[in-house]
Design a protein around this nucleic acid. Sequence first.
RNA 1: UCCUCAGUAGCUCAAUGGCAGAGCACUCGGCUGUUAACCGAGGGGUUGUAGGUUCGACUCCUACCUGAGGAGCCA
Length: 437
Amino acid sequence: MKQTYIAEIGKHIGAEVTLRGWLYNKRSSGKLGFLEIRDGSAMMQAIVSKKDVDEATWEASERATQESSVIVTGVPREHPKKPGVYELDVKTLELVGLASEYPITPKEHGVEFLMDHRHLWLRSKRQHAILRVRHTIIKAVRDFFDNNGFTLCDTPIFTPAACEGTTNLFEVNYFDEEKAYLSQSGQLYNEATAAAFGKVYCFGPTFRAEKSKTRRHLTEFWMVEPEVAYAKLDDVMELAEQFVSYVVARVLESRQEELKVLERDITKLEAIIPPFPRLPYDDAAKMLDEAFAAGKLENKFEYGSDLGSPDETYISSQFDKPVMVHRYPAAIKAFYMEPDPLRPDLALCVDVLAPEGYGEVIGGGERASSLEYLLKQIAAHGLPEEAFDWYLDLRKYGTFPHGGFGMGIERCVSWLCGLEHVRETIPFPRMLYRLKP
RNA sequence: UCCUCAGUAGCUCAAUGGCAGAGCACUCGGCUGUUAACCGAGGGGUUGUAGGUUCGACUCCUACCUGAGGAGCCA
């Protein structure tokens, strides 16, 4: 008995097939049973008619509870009332595993309950759709870089020192010599591999021990980080808009069904095509001042500070494409940012803010290439110079201008799916106060 | 760390300081085209914890616990 997957059922109309899966839901009308079967690929309704099946099958169909595992044989045909929809006329049904009373009912549930049952919640239609979109996004991310001459060079997860201080890092006590930390970015290592391969990317889990408790934060999330030798800030911005547009297009192309389940307004996604607006920090500051004067923002924006969440939301709401805010004050950015030669108080960096209030999905820029400047910056930030000896070597042995960015996968999934919270974008989210399941 | 809100049946919620309730889920019965199916019956409660006010507290007060949303910080 070869298994047929429901997603392929259209190819088997009129021929007997075997489905293996789980009972999603059941309705009955006397001697007629309607079983919704899911097998991971899709769902379909199976019809059990008492007069057409043997006693064991009828009894099993009556006994089967929600989420019981079942093997069903039958003949698929078109739904009598819905063209293009298929149903299965059941011949036999075998109960593989009777499910105990299933906690997730077809009615509504609260967040805490669903999060406690995340291992089961994944079986529901909505979660299935989200994680399929996630899969497509990740595939598109890899394809984009693989097809554009990038080499995958993954960076370590255990790292000896912080990129930007140790306050938000997870400490690991294992290595004899010194303290280790879980990676918060692969960027410094990307700069080393970029000198070897030219165009590189890394893609892995990232850890941030921030006491953040918002819909945009996870303590463990996945980040893809490209780095390009000889790239200037303009090249980085162009790469970012090409990359984001490609990923969005791939999702639109292959995940229509899932976006429909999620009730996503796809016209919003269809607008995501290059070029994206470029907004200098100074202009962003002016926009925020005007918004505050017009009573559209609660707090006055202070020039020189970083954009707050409400600020980002306001700015992105003014555009129907992702907006690239560039050239922030160097003082509020990481030590390795290249200063703008025309305005040394500004850093050659860029944040990409997704539309519809989804906030920052990409952060990046041009890296400082001068050894003298980096030494000054490390001292100014109070960082231990010896921790960066290998990083400084990159400036000693053939330094070169270069840049790149990092994109948080979960924020991207959240945006493309139109979700309220990133916790649904990863199979098992890790958050402040959430380690199980 | 700070601000706001919420904890009542397995789940989602109701109950004006005066008898602890409904829908879903579950069990039993009915129904040959159901779509969160429907109809009838049944079991199911330390109202987050501790204290206080009151003749009487799910309801009011205090503290704590847990969760959610937000700020800061970030992708």
